[in-house]
């Protein structure tokens, strides 16, 4: 019978990804309810020594495949390794991070194992019999659906990064590390890597605000923009401003976000001391992730923020520069 809760522990360049540790945290909660063990799958090349970290964060057993075929992420070798282990050990659950790796590998694997998969879960619960209740947003977050996979094992899900809580690491925790060997079918690999380039991390704070991945944007609540520029450099982003700072001449018009400025859609928009007049919101509300820091709790910017913090913007910028 299928048992144990498994976590696919994603690593990149040998670094365990935060989402893997978060999943070990939730796996531990689920396993406590059913009396199962938490299993971690660790795939990569020269990554063996990371197994202890996974135990510290909640794994009872770590299945390690250390093989040069797994040095770069490619779907087929990763799918072959995971499928072989899943068939051999029959876990009842396998969790993946909903990253560009997890969302590539998990569906391939679900079809190979002929089982169900639920994408982008934001909540996981189970009952004593080990049935998993997987809750996910649908229709752009307008609706939440709880999905079950009653008759197939393993139950599989990808889980959004940043939603689950990690455990406090305990390096005295005992666990088992099992080194696994995979029987490769290289005829199925099909895809070869010509090159792999990490994103350009150069600092260009005066680059076009429409092209920046991260925008550090300042409003009336920020008196001195020099620390904001320092922050923009540290996060490899660019600086932008609301109309208030442009009107007083602190920032150039080319940096203005909003109806009379530019419309931006960065991966992260950090709004410091910006109240969020409707004209400003029109220029940035499509950003993928919005952080707002403002002393006024009722500022409209908080209505569009994914992370809203009531605090003094200048002081937060100062602390960010210290941290980074």
């Amino acid at each position: 019978m299928a048992q144990n809760i498994w976590v696919f522990c994603e690593q990149r360049d040998g670094e365990i990804q935060s989402v893997a540790l978060e999943l070990l945290g939730v796996a531990k909660e689920l396993a406590t309810k059913t009396g199962e063990k938490v299993g971690a799958i660790l795939l990569g090349h020269k990554i063996k020594d990371k197994a202890q970290d996974l135990i510290a964060y909640g794994a009872d057993e770590v299945h390690v495949v250390d093989d040069k075929e797994l040095a770069c992420f490619l779907t087929e070798p990763y799918a072959q390794a995971t499928a072989q282990l899943a068939k051999q050990y029959q876990p009842s659950v396998i969790l993946f991070g909903a990253t560009s790796i997890g969302r590539d590998l998990a569906p391939r694997l679900s079809a190979r194992l002929k089982t169900g998969l639920t994408a982008d879960c934001t909540k996981l619960e189970n009952d004593e019999n080990g049935n998993l209740f997987m809750t996910r947003p649908a229709f752009g977050g307008n609706l939440f659906a709880t999905i079950i996979c009653p008759d197939h094992r393993p139950q599989m899900s990808t889980v959004r990064p940043g939603v689950m809580k990690k455990c406090e690491p305990d390096y005295n925790r005992k666990g088992e590390v099992v080194e696994e060997k995979i029987e490769w079918d290289k005829s199925k690999f099909g895809v070869t890597v010509i090159e792999e380039i990490k994103n350009d991390d150069s600092c260009d704070i005066d680059g076009k605000i429409e092209d920046a991945k991260i925008l550090v944007s300042c409003g009336r609540g920020v008196k001195d923009v020099a620390p904001a520029k320092e922050l923009a450099c540290k996060v490899k982003g660019a600086v932008a401003a609301s109309r208030a700072l442009v009107d007083v001449g602190v920032m150039d018009h080319s940096r203005q976000v909003g109806q009379t400025g530019k419309t931006v859609r960065p991966q992260a928009y950090l709004a410091f001391g910006i109240s969020g007049a409707i004209q400003h919101l029109a220029g940035m509300e499509e950003s993928e992730f919005i952080v707002a820091v403002n002393t006024d709790k009722s500022a409209p910017i908080f209505k569009v923020a994914n992370l809203g913090i009531v605090a003094d913007a200048a002081a937060v910028i100062k602390n960010l520069n210290k941290l980074l």
């Binding site: 649908a138 709880t146 999905i147 079950i148 709790k297 994914n306 809203g308 602390n319």
Partner: peptide, 26 residues
């Protein structure tokens, strides 16, 4: 293999509620 058990319109993660934090925790 997967079935919808229930649906809800409660939005518990779309926007994280606004937090009041000191500058360091922020």
């Amino acid at each position: 293999p997967t079935k919808v058990k229930s649906t809800a319109t409660k939005q518990f993660d779309k926007t994280i509620e606004t937090l009041e934090l000191d500058a360091e925790s922020a």
